[in-house]
Design a protein around this nucleic acid. Structure first.
Lengths: 192, 192, 192, 192
DNA sequence: AACTAAACGAGACGGTACGTCCAGTCTTTAA
DNA sequence: TTAAAGACTGGACGTACCGTCTCGTTTAGTT
């Protein structure tokens, strides 16, 4: 079980520089200007160093996104599970409406022309987000806080569906009003 | 009265050949192989002929999509408005799950790196689809068929949000069961 | 012998506009920018109007050159034939060193990739220039002004060869000193 | 000491393939078909590989020409300097009348629309040819073989002027008779 | 301390597509 | 009936980026 590899170890510094470059390019120049060439240039790194570590540019951006604390929204330990849900959704909205938005849009766009990445994105990102949401919803059930009319998977489809839809199409904002509306929809209080 | 243009008129034949080539490439080779170069090659047309008519490749694909009858789903004249909604959603699912899926995925992906196209796509496609849905929902209200708890714009966000989400992420199918589930959700029958 | 042609007559105005445009482009932008497209644009004329009248762009430039009085150097009626030669060469140098230079360079360049034009240029321009020169040289012989050591065709090769060579390569100027040097060379005075 | 270049070294094989392709295209298809696109295609090389090494297509053709031994005519070590001159000119004629002719015509044509190349061509080709000729002429002077009436630079203008003129205009051949005539002209034997 | 192995940056490679320009032709309306 | 003019097909332009490769150099761990 010794994974002691011989030879020069990979540079953590290069790793970080690449992720930083990807994040900055995305924020400053947009998705169209975020190419491997540009990332290598800005990070001061050779292209092979990038290809050695990530299978596609989208995987870089995904890692850059996951590194940010903001998106990695923990289940809030609020008094009521319903309140936890509201906080979770508000945080998600804020993240998607802010700096994470460009990353998310880039990722879903690339997933449409790269089936292999699409799977990794599904397993490594959206599935986890769904699990987090469903675990909160489960708590509302346990406590009998809602009339759980909608099953958890459908609820996840609705919540994330609306979020992605607004993010990608841009016809309406991702704000706290939406968070609250969705909270009420998938976890309507008894007697609500 | 300035509709008398001099010079050789634009060839309808070239127009159709380009749209056909775009559609076929998308279906046969996928989005990554659908380039302006490849479209021109397959359509037997010069690249300038394409650039003269469309501002981007996504606009070609959008027009190719709109030309297909399948996606242009009319408001069905069913007995009840609720039934009309169900039929509308079933047809939408079938379209998105079938040949139109590749077009839709291509369009939303390109909208993420081309803000100008994103607007055209929003105005020329998603806005119209929303209007169609909302006009059906309005009919269910008029007839008092549903409890109409959800306002029409939110309903459109939910319905299309879930559809796009499943189409783009691919974690679950776009089938008639989903159509029925969404029908019940946004137009739940009185006493349902 | 009625050359009364039916149909719309060709526009003289267009003809002149085309020649003017060719001349101006050549002088202002240089040979690389002198294209049929650019001439049509500047002359406010359609391309077929040009193709209908000239077989190649070089033929346009040739006509534009011939229209200029400067290059069409008549045999000067000077006192001595030797003096006539000197004047002829000086005028030729001045023309080639001035506005005509760009035309001449353009023409000889295009003759290298268009054999058909090369013949027209040879017959319609260089052959006539040689004849003019040779007729002057013949007069010097008649009058016994020179030791006509060099035969007239070789003399024409030398005179025009040196002129073209300096014009095309640009290693030395086309000035009156050269005119005089060449005069002495091909028509060296008796006892010179 | 900066000759230690990093990165993958340039491929000599590609270099040769490009020069060969340029030469062959010129000989087989003529100057009009000799494009960078065609050279890249025939050499089995990407276009950027070409643009990385040469600033223009004329520079490629110039290098292809210089690589041929035929044109690189050494000063012949003949018994008399006058005989050396005759041999030099005969070889030059044969080269220009043969395979090198197409190269030379292509180069001088391109020099007329590319000032930057015109300088490189002047410095890298015509200037060297002039020097070679002048060094031979100098030897005839040293040995007192000729009356040396014409100064060396004028002699070079005459010799190369006539050669280029005949090559470019095509009104008369480049043959050994011309070589001999020019030999006599610029190095007429004492008592000739 | 010398050796080995893998990573490093740099940059060239063949290749594809980009968006533009021009060549030369075709098709319509205008004179 | 021809001229005029704009759109046509086609192809080359020069550039950007792709993903791979080949260098000389650097940095560990292993002998």
């Amino acid at each position: 079980m010794t994974d002691t590899r011989v030879g020069r170890p990979r540079s953590e510094q290069a790793h970080d520089a690449i992720l930083d470059a990807a994040r900055d390019l995305l924020n400053e120049k947009g998705g169209a200007a975020t190419t491997i060439e540009a990332i290598a240039r800005r990070a001061g790194v050779g292209k092979p160093t990038i290809y050695r570590r990530w299978p596609s540019i989208a995987d870089i951006v995904l890692e850059a996104l996951l590194r940010q604390a903001e998106i990695d929204i923990p289940v809030p330990a609020e008094s009521s599970a319903r309140e936890a849900l509201r906080v979770f959704l508000r945080r998600s909205m804020n993240a998607a409406a802010g700096a994470d938005g460009a990353h998310l849009r880039f990722l879903l766009a690339h997933a449409q022309s790269d089936d292999s990445f699409r799977e990794r994105f599904r397993d490594g990102f959206t599935a986890k987000r769904r699990e987090t949401l469903k675990s909160i919803l489960a708590r509302t059930d346990e406590r009998g806080e809602t009339r759980s009319r909608i099953d958890p998977d459908t609820a996840a489809d609705i919540v994330f569906g609306v979020m992605w839809y607004r993010l990608l199409v841009g016809h309406a904002p991702l704000d706290e009003a939406l968070a609250d509306e969705l909270t009420d929809l998938v976890a309507d209080p008894i007697g609500g």
